[in-house]
Design a protein around this nucleic acid. Structure first.
Lengths: 141, 141
DNA sequence: TGATTTTATTTGTATGTACAAATGAAATTG
DNA sequence: CAATTTCATTTGTACATACAAATAAAATCA
């Protein structure tokens, strides 16, 4: 159903959630070829480009909680895409060779995803929309 | 962290998810006084105003899957706020008196939530933003 | 009318995320 | 320097949601 047919379409709660679900679905579809969830993919990319990144920083960067980051890292470790080393209270996350190898494909994935929604919305509107959403998020923070 | 400081801030995936999480949080906070999750609240409101509504219609209206609606209804049934009757393949959901009683408070809740984000964003920008988000969602559908 | 297809709903299972509490180490403070 | 506080991370638990399969009824078709 089109959101414009919903009695709830005037409420930010429904609008944002519905949008997030659709975008998530599109992203999941896009990342399937690498057998990764989008969040895993983005985290891995970050670690490949920032070897030794700490969970706390990753959490800030990805706007997720530290506990969520721990969970994502666990999954990536199971797949042998990253390893964790802990010294004292500091944990560092490094990509494995297998993880590093994925970088070009992951970048292509991001490109394709961006292309997918840019084609739907137009380049200008896409960018403006993303900016507005960020602004809104900041203000709510 | 402000989304504008994130390296991912240009990606619709992160923007929408981050916004949805913030909005969800705000809504959850707002609905706590009624001891309801926002989605439970909205579903209950719909059932109070539409006694006998069927899960499939509710799913369309709320832009959630039927299975999710089943789960939400189960929770509301546990709390004795709605009851389900099934005849043949058709299920109808009705509010209990206890559920009906909540309506005014729920409407206030929605009002307060709207007020909360309208105060942050301004009335005009809020409305425009919601419209744009809906448009985007429709196009992605 | 009997067989097949469609429809509505529920169930089993899995994912993504968060919060609160636990852990363990480092930093501060008195 | 011992006690306390702060900090980084992980663990336990819970919630919202989805997909795929199961169920069961109704509708269609041959």
């Amino acid at each position: 159903m089109k959101s414009s047919n919903s009695r709830f379409n005037k409420c930010l709660y429904f609008s944002t959630n519905a949008l997030a679900r659709k975008v998530e679905k599109l992203a999941v579809e896009n990342w399937k070829k690498l057998d990764l969830a989008p969040s895993h993919g983005y985290l891995l990319m970050m670690v490949v480009e920032n070897p030794g990144a700490q969970p706390g920083c990753i959490a800030d960067e990805m706007q997720l909680t530290p506990s969520t980051i721990t969970r994502l890292i666990e999954k990536l470790e199971e797949k042998k895409l990253v390893i964790r080393t802990t010294e004292g209270k500091i944990t560092n996350v490094y990509p494995t060779p297998k993880g590093k190898e994925l970088l070009p494909k992951m970048k292509m994935c991001v490109g394709e995803f961006t292309k997918a929604y840019t084609e739907i919305l137009g380049a200008e509107e896409s960018m403006r929309m993303v900016q507005n959403i960020n602004k809104l998020t900041d203000k709510l923070g």
